[in-house]
Amino acid sequence: MPTPKDIQNEIIDNFSLFEGDMEQTLMYLMDLGKKLPAMPEEHKIEEFIVKGCQSKVWVFPKFTDGKVQFEVDSNTEITKGLLYLLWSIWNNQTPETILNTELYFIEKIGMSRMIGTQRSNGFTAMIQKMKAFATLYQQHGNS
C-alpha cells in the first residue's frame, strides 16, 4: 500500500509534465475525475455536502478494518479531478495517517495559480471535511 507521501510524489511528477500549461493541466484534472468510483445518489445528501465550495461537492465516509473509505463526487469535472487527488492520497488510510499527512503536493503543483483563490478556499473546505471525518473515527471508531 503506497503511503500518502508516495502518492503525492507521483502527483507532483505527473503534473510537472505539463510545464505549467494551464489548459493541459485542467484537461488532465478532468480525466482524473473520471477515474473516481461512482458515488451512490442516496449518499448525496445535505449532511455530506462540503460547504464553502462554489460547485456542489459531496464527501461520504465509511470506516472498516481501522481504515477510512471515502466516496466523493462533484457536479463539475475540474472539481472532481481535485477530489480525485485527495481521494487517491487518503482513501483506505487510517485516521492517524490522514490526520498526520502534510499535503505538500498542493503548493508543488501550483494549485492556487491553477484554481484561483475562490476555489482554493473550496479545496481547503474539502480537506477539512475529510480530516473531520478522520478525527471522528479516531475518537469514536465506528460508533
Binding site: 478532468m30 462554489q54 463539475t76 475540474i78 472539481t79
Partner: peptide
C-alpha cells in the same frame, strides 16, 4: 458545467 467552461 459552466464553472468548468469558465476555467477552460
Amino acid at each position: 458545467h459552466h464553472f468548468d467552461v469558465g476555467m477552460m
